[in-house]
Design a protein around this nucleic acid. Sequence first.
DNA 1: CGCCCTAAGTAAAGATACTTAACTTAATCC
DNA 2: GGATTAAGTTAAGTATCTTTACTTAGGGCG
Lengths: 410, 410
Amino acid sequence: MTEHPADPPADQRWNRRRLRSNNEWLLLERLRTAGPASRAQLARDTGLSKPTVSAALAALEQVGLAREAGTVVPDRGRTAVLYEADPTAGYVLGVDIGRAWLRLAVADLAGTVVAREDVPNNGRSGSAVAESVLAAAERVTAAAGLRRGDIVEAVVGAPGVFDERTGRVRYAVNLPGWGRSGLVAGMREGLGTSLTLHNDANLAAIGEYACGAGRDSRLFVYILIGTGLGMGVVADGELFRGAHGAAGEIGFLPLLTHPMPPAGPAPVQGAALRGTLEDAVSGEAVVRGARELGMTGPQPLTAKRVFEAAREGDPAAVAAVRQEGERLAHVVAAVSSVLDPDLVVLGGGVGHSADLLLQTVQDTLHLLTPLRPRVAPSELGDDAVLLGAITTALRSARPKVFESHNADHT
Amino acid sequence: MTEHPADPPADQRWNRRRLRSNNEWLLLERLRTAGPASRAQLARDTGLSKPTVSAALAALEQVGLAREAGTVVPDRGRTAVLYEADPTAGYVLGVDIGRAWLRLAVADLAGTVVAREDVPNNGRSGSAVAESVLAAAERVTAAAGLRRGDIVEAVVGAPGVFDERTGRVRYAVNLPGWGRSGLVAGMREGLGTSLTLHNDANLAAIGEYACGAGRDSRLFVYILIGTGLGMGVVADGELFRGAHGAAGEIGFLPLLTHPMPPAGPAPVQGAALRGTLEDAVSGEAVVRGARELGMTGPQPLTAKRVFEAAREGDPAAVAAVRQEGERLAHVVAAVSSVLDPDLVVLGGGVGHSADLLLQTVQDTLHLLTPLRPRVAPSELGDDAVLLGAITTALRSARPKVFESHNADHT
DNA sequence: CGCCCTAAGTAAAGATACTTAACTTAATCC
DNA sequence: GGATTAAGTTAAGTATCTTTACTTAGGGCG
């Protein structure tokens, strides 16, 4: 799980007192992002002197943040002792609350998953789901050989926009009580860790950026097409959230569903506006389109079956898939003209069949706009949200662990 | 011209050697952003000790970066000597290459405009415009009582997307030779300063953020509607550029002009796709709409005249303006669903009449989406690009001036 | 008017964490 | 086994910060 070096923990004043801990952080980040290295190598990399590196590294080792990692014999000269960031200095919990499955994983500070559990999501209400998550969290933590206190940070991904101010979820769907106010606080308490809730598409974008298709991208857009429609934007490694955390809620994009001719009398009337983009491109829309195009076959028709049929040449299914591709191209074109990404990744249930869609999307894009980003399928598939949750949790966990281990030393 | 405190100049290592200059920068930024203060006040604000503040301030004063700014008598105790960042430590040049006017201004480090000149843009080619700019730049610099070397940084705003990699302008319109490769280099040489070229809508957004309607906004979108259509996005005080600097090129937004029904056979064919959003909502579109709606009146019909007629109750003009408002609402809705801004500012020629449009835009927005940002007219009007250019120039000038004055001291 | 109080600002001493330079250690090569 | 090379340490020196104590300058009040 590669990642950019992070900034030093916030609120660090420029006092000389903090200079030491800043340098220690610098070294630790170097070790984490660029792998094991000798003291001499670290000195060259960071510009610090060798004695300083030695002293800082000794301090890091003493509090358990760094550890030896074997030796290496250079072409000439003395054998070098390698150091690495100690991945066992802390652990995080990632949770993906999907429509069908709850996925949980515990990872160490290096991002290595040390325990994982997927359970069917049978919850009929927000609180039922929250309870399942808590129970499963206990199990994975135990399976990792850890206790509650070892989990430094937990991140939960779910549909909807989480409002940090009110502590409630907005635009949540299909789950009564999920928007309730005390829910997040309840999970936080039950878990005994600092916990944050994030939009699933945003986390999937982070995941795909950190360890999937978006690795080399400067500005990267992830479109989650499944039961619903969501989008996550990662700019220079940072999630783009918008003013209220609702950036990427493209379910409300006024595209396709209420056309407006370029001239003529004002056509905007309430009646035409009921549909949303979500209804036009989500998995359900693929099924509806296939049915309207005369597709028959195994019932009930699902998006998966439509794609399978298309792969085998069923004409109606092929047409339905093509239509989906054309609509997605409109979405990509709209998003590209606003954001100018260099990569758009298609994920979620429909994204699984991105190979069938890609050609149509690209061809249509050529007709629509000169701003054409690369379009690619998801690499992480169903794990994108979970890995994004872990990545996000790690980002806040690492400075937190560093600070705590530093505080009790002084 | 208020602004956030900036980060210390880049490439500052964490060595003790740089600690001093980091603290000096910290103090200077505090003085600049929060106004004059005494040494004791600065010590409280920054967390540094009083002797450290005294020493750093003395150094800053010696190299001409800070200066005394009067005294203040507190309720009790000794009179305090106030210090401020010296605005005369450096100057910047801002240039707005508009379709009708070239606007230039020289400002000091505090952002105060000390000389300004507006000249008609008669340039028929890229090189002719560049020459006019160079000549006018000489005049404003002289008018400000300065010589070439006093200008630390120049920023030029123009339509089109400037590609830093190739040094050429893409998507430039209406100006032959403006996309030529050596043009920017030529201006840079002629001016003898470091010079950068930026998209006009982006600069207008920066300007409106720094000293206009966007001051208190976290995520702010500026839509420039005039001869063309452009957009600038400012997130947390930073311009959002996209992967190739083309973010906000909403002229290519596939909206309005090629509608696509929610279901039915694939409708995307080349023929339907010629129009662009620019043709549908720019000033020209207002005129076209008014004409099609049967408006007569003083010829040639211009956007300005349509708005004037609408203000006086001409029914065709009112309908045309309403249509424009509805279309803009679609643009705002599309952009909002992607970016989730808290404020959208309408600027440019059409934006001048935002008061006429605002109600329609807001009403239509209510029909389109639950994501409704505040929509407001531009505060800076025609000066937005120029002030944005100055703001942008100041951002790079300030650390530059700081570094140079620090280097020759050691 | 002078004493007290308060806060600004300075001086001197002490602490910290860095760098430099010289040295030691440990490996390979010949 | 000595030369060579690079890793790592030791010791001295230095820059810059903080602390503490002091001085300076103003206003209030008896």
